[in-house]
Every structure is written in C-alpha cells, then in structure tokens.
C-alpha cells in the first residue's frame, strides 16, 4: 500500500537524515520526499510517499514520534487531500511540432515556460497521474530531460 506521510519537524541540522534513515531501517521504501519550510521558518514539512503494509506504517509513525525533532506526523488520506507534483520536461521541438506541443500542454493544464531553437520546456503542476499522462503524451516527441519533484500534499478543510 502506498501512503503519503506528512512529517512536521523542527528545522535542526540532521533532521532530514534522522527521518529518512528511520524509514530505511524499518523496511519502508521511500518513493519520493519533498521538504520545505512552513509558514514558520523554524519548522519544516516533509512530505514522504512510501509503500509498505499498514502495521509497518503504524510502527514507523510511532518511531517518527520518538525522534526529538519531530513535532507531528500524519498519514494523509488520499481522498481528502490535495496533492501536487511539479514536473518540467524538455522536449525536442521545431516549428512544426511546437503548435502540437502547445495544444498538448493546454489540454493537460501545463504550460510552455521556455522556447529554444530546437527544444521547449513544459511545466506541469498537478496530481501524479496527470503528470504521468503528460509524460506519456510527450514521449513521441523525444524527451531530452525530465525532472519531477516529490509529491506535496495538504488535507482539505481546517483539519491539521
């Protein structure tokens, strides 16, 4: 089972290592990890996508709470959360293909953020499956480079 886990931590040196090492030590594979500060610059939020069974997850959450620098941990319920991933795709393009690429970007809610003589960079911020869908559509144009951030997510409503 895939889980999206939010870990709110104090911004102390080594905290990223402490958290990520705990996942590997307890047999959980991290698929993606995104870290950034929250509204409070001394506090960061780590959004971790990981897979493993429920019992291991429960154990990991409890172990995370034991880390002194960890303030809060929650397993984000998929249906009640807004999830986003950011991707940038550099694709080979000439004048002919550019219009087609613009169309694809439009229908996918992506945008072209850079145009060079022989390539364009398309940016998308969306749910994971939409990002993957765009990637599939772009494959036939020869992807030169692709970069994806880890997922970030927030629960809907006023719940924290």
């Amino acid at each position: 089972m895939k889980h999206t886990i939010s870990v709110i931590v104090e911004n102390k040196p080594g905290v990223l290592h402490r958290v990520s090492a705990l996942f590997s030590r307890r047999g959980f594979n991290i698929e993606s990890l995104a870290v950034g500060t929250t509204a409070d610059p001394d506090i960061s939020r780590m959004t971790i996508v990981a897979s493993g069974d429920d019992q291991t997850l429960e154990q990991i959450i409890k172990q995370l709470y034991k880390l002194i620098d960890v303030l809060k941990v929650f397993d984000l319920p998929e249906l009640e959360s807004i999830e986003r991933e950011l991707a940038m795709v550099k694709v080979k393009a000439d004048q002919k293909t550019q219009t087609e690429l613009t169309q694809i970007a439009d229908t996918c809610g992506a945008k072209i953020v850079n145009v060079a003589a022989d390539s364009v960079i398309i940016e998308i911020s969306a749910e994971q499956d939409k990002v993957e869908n765009l990637q599939r559509l772009l494959e036939k144009f020869d992807i030169i480079e692709l970069v994806r951030t880890g997922k970030i997510a927030l629960q809907r409503g006023s719940a924290e």
């Binding site: 040196p13 080594g14 290592h17 402490r18 090492a21 034991k66 880390l67 002194i68």
Partner: peptide
C-alpha cells in the same frame, strides 16, 4: 559520530 550513533541513541547533538 553523529551519523554513526544516530540509530543507537535516543538523541544526539553536535
């Protein structure tokens, strides 16, 4: 030392 002792301490400080 912080890296080495991290999994065998309750907490550590540099």
């Amino acid at each position: 030392v912080i890296g080495i002792t991290q999994p065998i301490t309750k907490h550590n400080y540099l």
